[in-house]
Amino acid sequence: MIRTVCEHDTQAITNIYNHYILNSVATFETNVITSADMAQRIEQVQNAGFPWFVAHNAQGDVIGYAYANTWKARLAYRFTVEITVYVDQSCAQKGTGSKLYSALFAQLRESDIRTVIGCITLPNIASERLHEKFAMEKVGHFKDVGFKFDQWLDVGFWQGTLK
């Protein structure tokens, strides 16, 4: 099930994200964050008027999340957002990311947002396919812009138009 994030989801979201910090190049953050850090991030997204959704299983456990956030601070970018999705490793590639993006895109289509941008550490075939499933296309590739786990990493940008 997909629903809007609640305050009591913060620790579960933090746990999911910290797994990626410690074990993946999907995020370029290198230090784990606290639940308070995540609560601030959720609040910032919500205060900006953007959606943040969580997926939960039948037991009510949060198994993933997706949100939209400001792409750039300049006013001319106000109709463009960066989108993000993370799924608990136990649920990876079982459709949770697609369900989250479906809810996120539906909400964004009802707003003034016209363009969505996804940033993907490359290679990441699963994430690339997820973004392309939502009619996003690769529009940029930056080589060796991140350094994590003793390796240089590339980043690709996927763009989609909602309207």
Rank of each mutant, 00 (worst) to 15 (best):
A135F: 11
I42K: 07
Y20T: 11
K163N: 13
G140E: 07
L75F: 06
C119H: 06
N69F: 06
I113T: 00
A135T: 12
F142K: 14
V155A: 03
V145K: 01
C91P: 04
Y101T: 03
Q107V: 08
N18F: 04
F53S: 01
T121M: 05
I33V: 14
Q59A: 15
G146E: 03
R78T: 05
H8T: 13
F147Q: 12
I21T: 12
A12G: 02
D154A: 14
G118A: 15
T84E: 06
D150N: 15
M38R: 13
W52I: 02
H131A: 06
I125F: 04
A39R: 12
G160R: 08
H141V: 12
M1R: 09
A106N: 13
T70H: 00
T84I: 09
I120W: 06
D154M: 09
G160D: 05
K148I: 10
A66M: 01
D154P: 00
A92E: 15
V116G: 00
K138N: 12
V87T: 15
E29D: 15
A26V: 15
D88P: 10
I16N: 02
D88M: 10
I117F: 02
E43Y: 10
C6Q: 15
V155H: 08
F28R: 11
K143E: 12
F79G: 09
L130M: 05
I117L: 11
M1D: 12
G146R: 09
V5L: 14
S98F: 01
R109D: 01
